[in-house]
Every structure is written in C-alpha cells, then in structure tokens.
Amino acid sequence: MSEHRKISASELKQYKKRSLLSEVWRNYKKNPSAMIALFIVIAIVVIAIVSQFAFDYKADIVQQNVREKFIHPCAEHPFGTDNYGRDVLVRVLYGARYSLSVGVVAVAISCILGVTLGLIAGYYGGFIEDFILRFCEIFTGIPSILMGVALISAFGQSIIVLMMAIGLVYTPMYCRTTRAAVMPVRDEEYIEAARIAGVSDLKIMFSHVMPNALSPIIVQVTMGVASAILTASSLSFLGLGVPIPLPEWGAMLSEGREFMRDHMYLTIFPGLAIMITVLSFNLMGDGLRDALDPKLKE
C-alpha cells in the first residue's frame, strides 16, 4: 500500500513548477545542436564581458598603427590587421558586446511593449483589439529596415537609438504572438470565475492569461535576438547603426568591403562572427521550441 501524505497547495505548486522546468531542460539536453548553440552563446557572453577588461579601448580598438596595416592572417594576428593597422581578432572579440547588447535590449523593448499590447488586445477584445491590431498592421506594412532607417534619421545615430528603433520595429510580432496565444483562453470559465470573484483585470491578465502565452514568447524572444542582431548589422553596414570607429561587426564589414579585392579576410571574419552568433540563437530557439512542446516536434 502506498503511503498517503497530505501535500499543501503551495508545496504542490512548487513541485509542479520545478518538474516543468526540469522537464524542459531534460528535453533540451537531448538536442545536441541546441546544446552546442547554448555553449556558443554562453561563450559569446563571456567574451563580451571579458573583452571589457582584457582590452584597452583606446590602445587596442581604435588606435591607428599605419605601419602595421593590411597584415594578412598570421600567427601574431590570427585574423590579420585592417587598413589602420588594428588587430581584427581583437576588434571582432570586442565587437561581441555591441551585437549582443543591441540584440538583447531591442528584444527586451519589443517584448515588453508587444506582450503588454498583445495581452490587452487579447483580453479585452472588441474595439481595443481592433485598434491595436490596426496599429500593428501599419508598422508591419513598412519593411523593418526602412523603418529602422527612418527612426535613426529622426532621432540621430547612436547605439541607444538603434536599440529603440529595432525594438519598435519588432513590437508588432510579439503583440500578435501574445494575442494569438491569449485569445483561446479569453472565454475560459476559470477566467470568468476569477472575474466574478473580483480579481482585478491586471492580476487576471498576468497570473491567469499570460502563462498560456509563455512558451511561444520564450521561443520568439530567443529567435528575436537573432533577427535583431541581423537587422542591427544590416543598419550598421548601411552606415546607420553603431557609429564608427566602434568595432560593430556590420560596420567592420562595411569598412572592409572597400578593400575586398586584395584583403578579403577583412570581410570574412566579422561576417562569420555575425553568422555564428545568429545561428546559435536560432538553434537555441529551435531547441527550446521542441523542448517546450515535444508534441510539436513531429
């Protein structure tokens, strides 16, 4: 006979939460490419933090040393040096912080704005929903890159503006995902019950409705960092993102492009850096999606 023991409600809740998280982690671990991606992302974060202390911005990143310009990759300079004699490897490593911070902050902005709008739209419905959806439609009607260019030209070129611009551009996506996830729950009886019991709308939204949208949002956030990094690098490539001489990867590509004929390595390494970072976030997102909802996998 099994032993019966009374479990308090809070204990049960805790137990459930823990098991859900560990379940996701257990599923995630089974996916080798997602695990590799996770390690790469951790490595990039570490690089971004360590490069802050390891390199001196003035001496290593921006100082020109014309005598050493265009040294092709060798033992001393594994990625070579650029047209000002700056070491490309050091600049690429140092550049991780820009891509990463732009990606993360932009996604945080669009996630907070988009999820809030999506929750409101999905929960209240009716006129408010229509209004918010139309608003999203206007923003998605303009290609993200052109919208980014317009925002940057309006507010000036800086890394903060770049973050905000990309954040704004991707807001409708989160709004739609959230709304789509919230919609089917809106008319559930437990929501009705909570409302009758006098729970405030705000509390219902965040504690009863929001959890339903969590998995698609988590996946979208991971992949969103990837697309934000890509958009940021395109904008920098167009000369509108992170201002030079900061070693942002897209900006480095744009600089290196002039010397492509003879010094191709100048464009290869920053491009590879972008690709590996974006790829890792995408793979992580894929792995997370499978881990969060194993049924979707097949």
């Binding site: 990837a226 395109s234 492509m260 004929r261 491009g271």
Partner: peptide, 21 residues
Amino acid sequence: MLSVSMPAFWLGLLLIFIFSL
C-alpha cells in the same frame, strides 16, 4: 538554418569576391 542566419549582404560580398573579383 544557415540561410536564415547568414547576413545576406555578407553572402553578396562573398559572391562578388568569387564570381566577379
């Protein structure tokens, strides 16, 4: 996966390097 993760302008530069330069 590679194609959605690659900056397109970078791919363009690589193609230029290979096919035109």
